[in-house]
Design a protein around this nucleic acid. Structure first.
Lengths: 238, 238
DNA sequence: TCAAAAGTGTTAAGCCTACACCCATGA
DNA sequence: TCATGGGTGTAGGCTTAACACTTTTGA
């Protein structure tokens, strides 16, 4: 057993300690009007060249893991200021066969219309619906599962779902989003009731005419209202 | 901007990457029949000698972060097989002034009667109630806050509170535990009702006579029942 | 006999769930 | 005119929250 600290010398021994590679891996969620999808890359580099994996990168000097996740994300999608949430650190000494690397995962929520297709093409990236995703390298499959669980919890307690939608969206799109995240059907009347109770949407005059002849009203998320509610102790609970 | 991967060479450049120190820090929760407390150490080593901090240690070769947290915990308390849950990775390049170190935190739940007082004395460790805890070094204060939030969520959704209690406990002890974790008062009739509905306790014949003249019945947590419930889709929700 | 904690049930309010019909419009 | 998706209200059951008195027994 290794001693935790050098009690005897009264100085802890930083320089004798093992230094490790640290990476971030991003679980990139997008919503294409029907389904929750994740963006995966086909590796054109070793190890595991040709297989599917999450997009990741090594932590650089002077960079937080959040910075690194943002960088990775921007490299792949061209997007910045994306919603990111840390999920877990994976530390199995054997998880990367080339060299021990610990990986910190983040999930990202993007409006899948926004991303730069040139860049994703360059990285041989592709969107997959959750059920149809290929097998992933290393522990990336587990990472995805873990991220989904976290996302499910988080969406039911904070209004992060809107990150996945365009600025203006219909009630139906919002409902489909929640259905696909929570993986359950929701009655549309009950859903509308609940959302309206939360009092964080602004109903616009405008209608989206693409999905039906009648057209459906567009809404936007009112961040200020949400924050005011939060201050007043009214919490978002779906 | 640093390239994520060496696309050109089709081999990612592990050896050129920065290697970092990785540590774990433990937020050790205990319950002393009245209050939730945390175990802190007074540092007898640099940096920040003489100040209070969480107990931590560097990640060793061939050790997962969970292994490391267990080791740290055993070193301080003599306990093993303790409930541990990973919370967050802290990666600010300046968080440790001596050398860049990323820290992965775990919270531990222990029955505070069990720990080895010799060992804690050796490390100048002391229990503090959450309100009375001293200021902590680095980002350890934030780590504690983050861990409490996670603990609150987890206890309301999984029966981990029992980890903090002795094998046999009274309904009142259990209630006080939940009150101190959730930081709110609970009506004892409603509490008993809810707990009984969960159907995971065994009421013993035995009474604890220490807290009142009448005495109060002791209970134990029935792990098998809980797992059976879980399998049948009945979930623990407080 | 009194003080102190244990134990126990009921009611009202709010919340959640299930459920069905009309509307507007383009084809 | 019909097919498609949009929009809306209500009733019953369930869960939650509020609330007070009796029991036991050691001091």
């Amino acid at each position: 057993m290794v001693p935790i600290i050098e009690n005897m010398s009264s100085v802890s021994n930083y320089q004798d300690q093992t230094h490790l590679l640290v990476a971030v891996d991003c679980i990139i969620f997008g919503f294409d009007k029907e389904e929750l999808k994740i963006l995966l890359i086909k590796r054109n580099f070793e190890p595991e060249m040709g297989k599917w994996s999450l997009m990741g990168g090594f932590l650089q000097p002077n960079e937080t893991s959040e910075n690194a996740a943002n960088r990775v994300l921007e490299t792949l999608t061209g997007l910045h200021d994306v919603y990111l949430d840390q999920v877990h650190a994976y530390t199995d000494p054997k998880r990367d066969p080339v060299e021990r690397t610990i990986s910190i995962t983040y999930y990202a929520l993007i409006n899948s219309e926004d991303h730069n297709e040139e860049l994703t093409k360059q990285h041989s990236a592709q969107w997959f619906s959750l059920n149809e995703a290929p097998e992933l390298i290393f522990d990336h499959g587990q990472m995805v599962q873990h991220a989904i669980n976290r996302l499910r919890y988080k969406t039911s307690v904070q209004p992060i779902g809107f990150e996945l939608l365009p600025e203006k969206f219909t009630m139906r799109q919002l409902q489909r989003l929640y259905e696909t995240i929570l993986n359950e059907e929701i009655d549309k009347r009950n859903f509308a009731k609940k959302i309206n109770q939360l009092d964080v949407l602004i109903k616009l005059e405008e209608k989206d005419m693409s999905s039906s002849k009648k057209g459906s009203f567009l809404f936007t998320f009112d961040k200020d209202k949400y924050e005011a509610n939060t201050k007043n102790g009214i919490s978002f609970k779906l």
